[in-house]
Amino acid sequence: MEKKEHIISILVHNKPDVLARIAGILGGKGYNIESLCVNTTTQYEISKIVMTTVGTQDIITRIENQLQRLVDVIQVDDLTNVESIHRELVMVRLNLTPDRKEQIKKAVDTNKWKVIASADTYMILEITGDQSQIDFALARLEPLGIADMTRTGIVALNLEN
């Protein structure tokens, strides 16, 4: 069976050790978490975890079953099998060295990248998009000299209930 990336959305009770339980059960059974996003939902007591992992459908079903066994897990959905929209966010710091300053400003204008902080010596960009859009943007930023960056895991939402 073919291995592919799956995006799994998990509703959990917002308890201090719930993430440790989820990471523990997956790590303990030998499954890897590729990316992870966690925050509360409209109800503070309930959090949503969006996690990506790679595996065959069999493995993914096992992961879902293992997650369902956890007492603090309310619901598990594989968003890969339904119509869903995906986003990531990356923040990138570019150092405005004298030799690159003009080149960077030009590239930011051309690509309509969003500047969220800047000073004489640096500029911080915020880029959102799906995985391929982020990869594409990072490829373009590479030659400009990325001083530092931080990239979130994937968040995803199904189009319909």
Partner: peptide, 9 residues
């Protein structure tokens, strides 16, 4: 923490 993997909860 120690018993997380070997308890039901």
């Amino acid at each position: 923490g120690i018993t997380r993997p070997c308890t039901k909860h």
